[in-house]
């Protein structure tokens, strides 16, 4: 098991964001030869920017203007779209549900995964290697293979249509990735402090809570963020296990709203207000912790 190398590699990649030497310097092709490519990239960037700007701006326009003048800036700011989405569209309660589920699931996952990842990352023997592999195996197993037996189990425990039940499932399905991620973080930490603590007679449990966890704070933050993002957007399990509107999380509220619209006539302003409620927290999180998110999500490729 090469957990140690994963960790150090991940770290060195993190410390070395943009060393100019890393780029294959001295490709002195004529600039215009690259122009079509660069234009294509900027087009792509523009489309991404347009998507999110469009969603946010349309959430403040009247349905008529969204539909008939999609490219025009809003003439008046219709904040009533947001309150309509929040109160009548079901996005308010769904937002609260999503926050509860995300916070509980992210905290629960990291709470369970970090001690396991600590012992797996810092013990290099065949047993820990085998258990690590056992967790990594879960990364390759698609949700649809576990969901039906889980449905049966949850039904027997009366945890269908129950947010606590969904939280437990979210913790379980996020364990493999989180253990894998944190394992490499713990493996990359220096051992001196741990040894010093052992010499001072600090117990192993205390060493973990007081010394290693604070050292791994960066990794824990990354794990919390990534689990939060995954749960915030998760739709398949939510759809399988939640049934009533009162329990819906944001993606379900959105699916539900889109369905309702097809019956009751469409209000695109309110629709995009709902879309914004689902999207904006992720954009804010990304603006705040962007590097951490991209590095964490692409860490898997470093193995």
């Amino acid at each position: 098991m090469s957990t140690a190398t994963t960790g150090s590699r991940a770290e060195s990649a993190a410390q070395d964001p943009e060393s100019p030497a890393a780029a294959p310097a001295g490709r002195r092709r004529v600039p215009w030869a690259r122009l079509p490519g660069a234009a294509l990239i900027w087009l792509f960037v523009a489309f991404c920017a347009f998507t999110f700007l469009f969603i946010l701006l349309s959430s403040l326009k009247s349905s008529y203007n969204v539909l008939n003048h999609p490219f025009r800036l809003p003439t008046e700011l219709k904040f009533s779209n947001w309150s309509k989405a929040w109160h009548d569209g079901g996005f308010g309660p769904a937002f609260v549900n999503s926050v509860v589920v995300v916070v509980a699931a992210a905290a629960g996952t990291v709470l369970l995964a970090s001690p396991a990842a600590y012992v797996l990352g810092r013990n290099q023997n065949r047993l820990s290697g085998g258990v690590s592999m056992y967790f990594v195996l879960g990364l390759g197993i698609p949700m649809q293979i576990i969901v039906l037996p889980l449905y049966s189990i949850m039904a027997k425990m009366h945890l269908i249509d129950n947010l606590a039940g969904l939280i437990v499932l979210y913790i379980v399905v996020n364990l493999p990735f989180t253990v894998y991620l944190l394992m490499s973080f713990f493996a990359s930490l220096p051992g001196e402090l741990e040894e010093a603590a052992a010499l001072d007679g600090v117990g192993p449990g205390m060493t973990f809570w007081r010394i290693m966890l604070p050292l791994a704070k960066g990794g824990l933050m990354t794990a919390l963020t990534l689990v939060a993002i995954a749960c915030w957007n998760e739709t398949f399990l939510a759809l399988m296990f939640l049934q009533t509107n009162d329990n819906f999380t944001l993606p379900l509220a959105l699916v539900n709203f889109l369905t309702q619209q097809q019956f009751t006539g469409e209000d695109f302003g309110v629709m995009f207000a709902g879309v914004s409620i689902a999207v904006l927290p992720m954009l804010a999180l990304y603006a705040w912790l962007g590097r951490r998110i991209t590095e964490g999500l692409t860490l898997g490729a470093g193995k």
Partner: peptide, 11 residues
């Protein structure tokens, strides 16, 4: 260009 990857597919 990473952005679409972290928002809801439904949205």
């Amino acid at each position: 260009i990473f952005l679409p990857h972290i928002v809801s597919g439904v949205a």
